[in-house]
Nucleic acid binder design. Sequence first.
DNA 1: GTTTTGACACCCG
DNA 2: TCGGGTGCCAAAA
Length: 97
Amino acid sequence: MFADLVYQVLRKVPRGKVTTYSAIARAIGKPKAARAVGNALNKNPYAPQVPCHRVIKNSGEVGGFAHGTKKKIQLLGREGVIVKNGRVGKEFIVKHL
DNA sequence: GTTTTGACACCCG
DNA sequence: TCGGGTGCCAAAA
């Protein structure tokens, strides 16, 4: 399924950087399936191998998180990504995989 | 009930 | 204003 594709694309994201749902959706060939990507990450069938916390909105907002949005920001900060006021530095966001 | 796929509404320019 | 893009959701199987 495309969840596997999402997983592969997501693992391409280097540590300390983040990506967007749209970027992943586009990478799998479904630019309109960004929501599906979110759900795929929500279920996260690939355990900690998939850094779903490394995926944020295209707007720079961390968006939502199944395990807690607050926790997600905490994780990102741990990765080296500076999250300020629920917003991630767009410099950390890689829109092109 | 759970899991997967997807078009639309809301937001920004 | 209108159009385009995004989204961790909702509907279908």
